[in-house]
């Protein structure tokens, strides 16, 4: 009886020890084989995308720039600027998720449909929603990040308040305080003191967005899109996330002020004209714009 008990306990302890020692090494192993990749799915709304279904579309429409291996090194690479995205890295500009996290399937779906202004990526709205969702899964299958890592939690955007002259003025203060003008310039023309030396993560020169030339921001041009751009940052570029340093309410003020810098007609622009708003003064002391 005693002997049996001892035996039982020693085996329990032994098993516990094996588990305790084995854990650190097994936790680091992630399975990433061909099978796992091809079975990657994507979910947009109530549509489910399958990586293997997107292969023909990818090989016909995408491979020229993004390459067979998804490394952005297709045959058009030398002539395309900005350079095609390298899907193997799993780093994306347009996200609803915080900096350093994976985008959601919806984000990738939107990017395919929207295209990227001032680049060679057209709007692929010609694909059906099912095809686009399949392509999202195919884009994901190139990077090991999608195995074992989940997309970040999308940032919360409060409902858009009414535009008022006070909000535009407050937005101007935020523009000055977090020093957007360092790269974008005091008039938003992309000519700030640091603009000339900017490079992307792969060391290639990159220009800050010029608000005044009438272009659309790459990650969408609704007020919500602009809010998202500076609160998540554009990963892979010099544009950082300001989520820790701009409060949600202030962020809307900044969106309204950025509208006044754009050449397109807008309510905000008319208000700024009425206010006689001047560009921020980089040499003014803090809080005295």
């Amino acid at each position: 009886m005693q002997r049996n008990n001892l035996r039982k306990w020693s085996s329990v302890f032994g098993a516990a020890a094996v588990v305790a020692f084995a854990m650190p090494s097994s936790a680091q192993q992630t399975k990433y084989d061909f099978e796992t990749r091809m079975n990657i799915e994507s979910h947009v709304g109530n549509i489910t995308g399958h990586a293997k279904d997107a292969k023909p579309d990818y090989r016909r429409y995408c491979v020229g720039c993004h390459g067979e291996l998804g490394d952005g090194n297709g045959e058009n690479f030398p002539w395309v600027d900005p350079k095609p995205r390298n899907f193997q890295l799993g780093v994306f500009k347009c996200r609803s998720t915080p900096t350093g996290t994976l985008p959601t399937d919806q984000d990738l779906f939107d990017s395919i449909g929207r295209g990227f202004d001032r680049s060679n990526m057209p709007q692929w709205s010609t694909f059906t929603k099912q095809e686009r969702t399949d392509l999202v899964a195919w884009v994901k299958h190139f990077s090991p990040r999608w195995v074992g890592e989940k997309p970040g939690t999308p940032i919360t955007i409060p409902p858009e308040p009414e535009v008022t002259p006070e909000r535009i003025k407050a937005g101007r203060e935020v523009f000055a305080r977090v020093q957007c003008w360092k790269c974008h310039g005091v008039l938003g023309q992309g000519d700030g003191p640091s603009a000339a030396t900017l490079t992307d993560d792969l060391g290639r020169p990159i220009a800050p967005f010029n608000f005044a030339e009438g272009a659309r921001p790459k990650c969408g041009d609704t007020d919500k899109d602009i809010y998202r751009i500076f609160m998540t940052g554009l990963d892979g570029t010099p544009m950082p996330s300001f989520a820790d340093n701009i409060k949600p309410d202030e962020a809307w003020d900044l969106v309204f002020y950025l509208r006044t810098l754009m050449s397109q007609h807008s309510k905000e622009k008319a208000m700024a004209k009425q206010l006689g708003l001047k560009p921020v003064d980089p040499n003014a002391p803090a809080g005295q714009q």
Binding site: G100, R177, V178, D235, P240, A243
Partner: peptide, 12 residues
């Protein structure tokens, strides 16, 4: 994973 965050004066 690469990330990119701003730190204006007085940032946490």
């Amino acid at each position: 994973i690469p990330w990119n965050q701003s730190q204006p004066p007085g940032a946490a």
